[in-house]
């Protein structure tokens, strides 16, 4: 009968550290969610309620706001956080509910492509916005 000797001899095995992506995605959802409460509610308040609300919004209003780096940063972070937050939410929904691997793959591809498109287009507009374009 074989005597098991490997237990005392084996050193403490370093566990194979796998990807931390799911943990980081989970954490990101919590943090971005908190940030978005402030960003989105603030945005809605300024755009829809503060003096005159939605009726005063025109090209000049937007141009005026985006001349300030503060509002540029506000809108940029709102765009990125909302896209990544919503995109990751949809990713988990697809992971949970897609039944076939092919369906899951293609739904996620559509999601990722649309995220990249919207984020890059929005970022491009915020950074290259030209207030004189209307003339």
């Amino acid at each position: 009968m074989a005597i098991a000797l490997d237990a005392p001899r084996s050193t403490r095995r370093k566990p194979s550290r796998r990807s931390n992506f799911e943990l980081q995605a989970w954490l990101f959802m919590r943090i971005s969610g908190l940030a978005l409460i402030v960003l989105v509610l603030g945005h809605l308040f300024i755009m829809n309620i503060l003096d005159g609300g939605v009726h005063r919004i025109n090209f000049a209003f937007v141009a005026g706001r985006w001349s300030s780096p503060f509002w540029q940063f506000w809108d940029l972070s709102m765009l990125w956080l909302a896209q990544l937050h919503g995109g990751n939410g949809l990713r988990t929904v697809i992971n949970d509910y897609a039944r076939k691997d092919a369906t899951r793959f293609w739904l996620k591809m559509v999601l990722y492509v649309s995220m990249v498109l919207i984020i890059s287009l929005g970022t491009f507009v915020i950074f290259t916005f030209n207030p004189n374009i209307s003339n």
Binding site: P15, S16, R17, R18, N20, E22, L23, A25, W26, N95
Partner: peptide, 10 residues
């Protein structure tokens, strides 16, 4: 580590 996976606690 096993539970940190895609099919784990997250």
């Amino acid at each position: 580590d096993i539970l940190n996976d895609v099919d784990g606690v997250w």
